[in-house]
Every structure is written in C-alpha cells, then in structure tokens.
Computed example of a mutant assay.
Amino acid sequence: MAAGAATVMLAVLPTIATAAEKIKVTDISGREVEVSVPVERVILGEGRQIYFTAALDTDEPFKRVVGWRDDFKKADLDGYNIYLSKFPQMAKIPTFGGMKDGTFDIEQAVALKPDVIIMNTEAKSATEESGYIEKLAKVGIPLVYIDFREKPMENTDDSMRIIGKLFGKEERAEEFVKFHDEQIARVTDKLEKTTDLKKPVVFIERAGGYSDDCCMSFGNENFGRMVELAGGTNMAKSIIPGTFGTVNPEQIIASNPDQVIVTGSNWELYVPGGAWVGVGPGADKAKAQEKLAALMKRPAFTGIKAAANGNVHAIWHQFYNSPYQFVAVQQIAKWLHPELFADLDADATFKQLHERFLPVAYNPGYFASLKAGL
C-alpha cells in the first residue's frame, strides 16, 4: 500500500510542478500579470536595469537577458566598460530603442521569444498609446512595470521583490531589500533623534553641464526626496510639482541655497567634451572638481551662499535610476550634516554592496566636492 501511494505521488508531481510555474504578479502600476517563472529569457526595457539584474543574478548577470535598450553604454560609459571587461558576451546582446521615444522594435522583440519584458513605469503612457501590451499579449509575452526612477523611495523595495519573483530569487531580493532599508535607517533614525535640527536649503541640479540650459532639477521625489531624507530642504520642492522639472536662474538666486549638488556621469557618448561632471566608477576626482567649479561660474550660481562657502558637490547621476539610492542618501547626509554623520562612510557602504551583491569590484569616484575635507 505504501508503494502504491508512492506511485500515485510520483504520478502527480509533474502536474503540480507545471501548475506552480504559472503565477500572477502585481506590477508597480497595479496591473496583474500572469508569468511563467522562473523566467529564463528577459528583455530589459532599459540597459541600466542591469543594476538590479546584477544584484540578483550576481554570478551571471546577463544569463537571462536576450535583449535590452541601448542606453547603458551611453548613460554610464564607465560602468558599462567595467561590466564589459568581465562579461564580454554582453556586447553581443541585441539592443533596442525605447518605447517612450517610439523606437522600440516589437517584431525584433517577438523574434527573441522572451518570457517577460521588464519596463520602467515612465514608459507606461507611450506603451499603452502604441498598443504594445495588447500586441505582445497576442503572442503570449507579458510585460511587467517596475520603478526606480519616478518614485524610487516608494517603489524600490516592491520593484526588487517583483523581480525576485520573476527570477525565482525571492530570498535574494529580500536580502537586498533588508540591506537597502537598514542603510537608509542609519540616516533617518539619527535625524529623528536629533532635536533642533537645522535643515540647509539644497539645490539639486540634474545633469548640470549636460546642456547650456539652466537648470533641470527634482521636485518632491527622486533626488529631491533623497535630500529631504538626508536632513535637508529641497529648494525646488515648491517649484516643481512632480518628480522632474526646471527652475530658472532667478529662482536659484532668490532662494540663495546653502548647498548645491550636481548630478553627473561619463556622458562622452552623449555630449563629447561637455561641461558635465564625470563622476562614477574610477572617475578622476581632480577633473570632476575642476568641472564642478566651472559650473558655479554661471550667472545662476555666482554670489549664492553655497558657491561662496564651497558647499558644492557632485554625485553619480545613476543613483536616480537604480536600487542603490541609499548610498546617495548617506553621502548627502554627510555633506549636509558632517558633524552629525562623522562616522558615516558612503563609499564603504557602496563597497559593501558590491562585495555582497554585485559581480564587479568597487571602484570609487562617485562623489566630488569643492568643500575641503569632503
């Protein structure tokens, strides 16, 4: 009888396993999507999504990636080259244009037979207007939205958990989320216990020097929210109603911010020889400081307190579109409240992240400052 029971159990096991492969995932936009997991063939709607893929598939970050958008090399050339040196096969992965700019090739995507396409929420409107979701559904390709950009401080943990489910790496995703939250708490817990905290007014310039225009910034999310979490007052919060927007030079002069933080990266492929500040892995700190100082000679910044006191800093732009924002929160807190966070080292935190979760070695250069000692 025991043998018969075992036979019955063996007979039903394949059915159970097959049924368990189909799950319903609620993505960041609230859509319920049916996906067969773990996914083995993935199209990344943005090349910089490798930042989360690498944290989950650490040993083989490209093993599931059959296609990706062509932005990683252009937006983060230094980071791209670091990954390329260790994983040369990534150069052969087919690339796409973006759904948002209408250059996504749906026929190419279908030909690659992905199990899922992972898109940023910023592309949602364009994706819906073009009917991509319905077209993909007809050929059995689900599309899942995640978000590390529009509301990253709200959606990063859930996005990592969603990707963990898709990849069959739920425990790994939870481990990352735990580390992420603990590192932010090192800042927020201390601030909550600090009485009579003076919050400096901070102007965050998005991609300063990328173009001649002045000045792109952040409203109440992304780097704007990071400033608030780090114990500052985001100057543009009351000017920009959403996540992204622009302030004019007169508004900067009138606000007279105590601190200025400029986001930058190696954008040589976008704007060759541009005035942007090339912070990032392995960046030349002296060159970054030189370019940062040059940006402060523009009319919007000459004479403001931040420039006069040297409280001007540069930070890696890609923190705005990755699950690594907690590193930025720590560094901003250190700039705004150096005495309160004297024992906090964002470089050490980022190095720890690399050692625990990422397949490439940490290479400092993500921050620069005109303030002596910072």
Rank of each mutant, 00 (worst) to 15 (best):
E339D: 15
Y366V: 02
H354V: 11
R356W: 07
L370M: 11
F350Q: 08
A346P: 12
Y362A: 04
K351R: 14
H354C: 12
T349N: 06
L370R: 03
D345G: 02
A372T: 14
V360E: 03
A348T: 03
A368Q: 06
D347H: 11
F341Q: 01
Y362C: 06
F341C: 01
V360G: 02
K351H: 05
G373E: 11
D345A: 11
L340C: 10
T349S: 13
A342Q: 15
N363Q: 13
F350Y: 15
E355D: 15
P359V: 02
A346T: 09
L336Q: 04
L370I: 10
D347N: 15
L344W: 02
D347T: 13
S369D: 09
L344K: 04
L370T: 05
A348G: 03
K351I: 05
F357T: 04
D345Q: 06
A348V: 01
A348W: 04
P364M: 00
P338Q: 13
A368E: 02
E355N: 15
D343T: 12
L370N: 04
Y366M: 08
T349P: 00
P364I: 00
H337D: 07
N363W: 01
L370A: 08
L344D: 09
F350V: 05
K351M: 06
A346S: 15
A342Y: 10
A361E: 15
A372D: 14
T349C: 07
G365S: 04
D343L: 09
G373T: 05
P364L: 00
P364Y: 00
L340E: 06
V360W: 02
D347P: 08
L340D: 05
T349K: 03
A361L: 10
A342V: 15
A342F: 10
K371V: 11
D347A: 12
H354R: 10
E355Q: 15
A372S: 14
G365D: 01
E355G: 14
P364A: 01
E339Q: 14
Y366H: 11
E355H: 12
A361N: 14
A348K: 14
K371E: 12
A346Y: 05
P359A: 07
E339F: 03
H354T: 12
H354K: 09
A368M: 04
L336D: 01
K351V: 06
N363T: 07
N363A: 08
E355T: 12
L353W: 04
D345M: 10
A342S: 15
Q352E: 15
F367Y: 15
K371A: 13
D343K: 09
H337K: 13
A346H: 08
Q352I: 11
L370V: 10
L344C: 13
A368D: 05
F350M: 13
G365V: 01
A368Y: 00
H354W: 09
K371C: 07
F341K: 01
L358C: 07
P338M: 13
F367E: 01
Y362E: 06
H354I: 11
D345V: 11
L358G: 04
S369H: 08
K351L: 04
N363C: 03
V360R: 03
K371N: 09
K371R: 14
E355Y: 12
L344Q: 11
V360L: 06
L344Y: 05
A372W: 06
L336V: 09
K351W: 01
L336I: 12
G365N: 02
F341L: 06
L336H: 02
L353Y: 06
L344I: 13
Q352N: 15
A368K: 01
E355F: 11
L344V: 14
S369Y: 08
E355R: 11
L353T: 02
Y362K: 07
L353H: 02
T349R: 02
